[in-house]
Computed example of a mutant assay.
Amino acid sequence: MKAAVLKAFGSPLVVEEVPDPVIGTGEVIVDVAAAPVLAYADEVFSGARRYLLPPPVIPGCGAIGRVRTVGPDATVLQAGDWVFCDPTVRSRDDARMPDIVLQGWSARGDGGQRLQQYHRHGGFAEQLRVPTENAIRIGPITEAEAGPWCALTTLLVPYGGLLAADLRAGETLLVSGATGHFGSAAVAVGLAMGAACIVAPGRNRAVLADLVRRFGDRIRPVTLTGDEETDRARMRAAAPGPIDCVLDTLPPSVGSPVVRAAVMSVRPGGQVVLMGGVGMLGGDDLALPYPWIMRNDVTVRGKWMYPPDAVARLAGLIRAGLLRLEDYAVAEFPLAAANEAVAHAAGHGGPFRLTVLRPGPA
């Protein structure tokens, strides 16, 4: 099969013939129809993000495709089924604290790196081998719809955070980083889950206005000033009542005061979920007052990715028309143009934009 291979950090991807994946027990082989190219892929491939992705490797975080072959433990999946290849691979020998790897993208800890030695290659290829539980049926689609369905890779991340926060219909949500790629997805997912109102802070007035255009008066935009106290007051004033939940999706380039301004706008008894990258590349870490957390009974938790059942649940929101893939502008590239796709993704990121590779039929 053909694949785009990262030979070394800082080097272009090389599209070449590689051996077809070989199925084992508990695995599925998928013919890849489309694979998302994340906006920061160039930072990963250059080594700037210092991800644990030892080259040579076929990268790619998730894919949409059709089942080619199933192993002996599959009781529902059949050849030809359309599936989302979930890159979040969990070890099977510790149900309480499984090691996790993002297949074709990164790993964490010693156990994750050991897992990565086997579940290594991602979706920038004509075929992909995944654990049986990671080939998740999404129902029938056309070949042309494979690209837009790659938005699952983006939408699932904030969905995992909102599930962790136990967001309830009718609650008020604040999305810190609402004008970004994952933050705008959090806005769409939060509305699909029934949020009555979403406070959307950001510096980009055009993107804030676009969120209101897309979703109406359930969006309460807040233009940030850079002053922590002023911005917190503006966020609270924009909400129709107490803010029940804050979800942070800000990238590593943002300073901790911006996060703190949003986090401390939550009501007493509220939920805060941290999913961003602040502090990952240096700079001050997030500091929150102990008395404020304790006396206000605030829950602050981190969340990485999403639970195993999230894919099917999110697909249900899409099938029900509560979450619209049509909101995404999709730019598609053939596998031979993998480097062009990475460059395009870097220059055309942001809200409701999606770059995909099409290793299979267009």
Rank of each mutant, 00 (worst) to 15 (best):
P158R: 07
G147K: 05
G180D: 04
D166E: 15
A125V: 09
G177Q: 03
A79K: 14
A135C: 12
G122N: 06
G80R: 09
V175N: 04
G123V: 08
H121I: 00
G180H: 09
F124Q: 03
E171H: 04
A79I: 03
G111S: 06
W105Y: 14
A95P: 05
D93S: 13
S106H: 13
M97D: 12
A146T: 05
G109E: 05
D99H: 13
A169M: 08
L162K: 02
R96M: 11
G160A: 10
V89L: 02
L77P: 00
P87N: 07
G123P: 02
H181N: 12
M97T: 10
A107L: 01
W149F: 15
Y118L: 11
P98E: 10
T142P: 11
D86H: 08
R96Y: 09
W149H: 15
L174K: 08
P158S: 02
R114V: 10
T142W: 10
C85T: 12
G139D: 07
P87A: 07
D99C: 08
A164C: 11
V89G: 00
A151S: 14
A95L: 14
V157K: 08
R108W: 11
Q117M: 10
H119S: 03
T132V: 14
E145N: 05
V130L: 12
V175P: 03
T75L: 13
E133V: 06
Q103D: 09
R129K: 15
E145K: 08
L102V: 00
Q127W: 00
D110Q: 13
T172G: 05
D99A: 14
Y118Q: 13
V83K: 02
A169L: 08
Q113I: 00
A164L: 11
E143Y: 11
D166P: 00
E126Q: 15
P131L: 13
G139C: 11
R129G: 02
L162D: 07
L156V: 12
P140G: 13
A107S: 14
R96N: 14
L115Q: 00
A79Q: 14
D110H: 09
G122H: 06
D110Y: 06
P98T: 12
P148F: 06
F84I: 12
D110S: 13
D94C: 11
L162S: 09
T132K: 09
S176I: 05
A125I: 02
T172D: 03
L155H: 04
Q103L: 12
P98I: 09
G139R: 08
A178S: 15
P140Y: 02
L152T: 04
T179I: 08
L174M: 14
D94E: 09
G111P: 01
F84T: 01
G161Q: 08
A135E: 04
T75E: 13
P87M: 05
D93V: 12
P131A: 06
L167T: 01
E171C: 05
L102Y: 00
G112C: 06
H181K: 13
T154I: 14
E133S: 08
A178W: 05
R137I: 02
S106Y: 00
V130K: 07
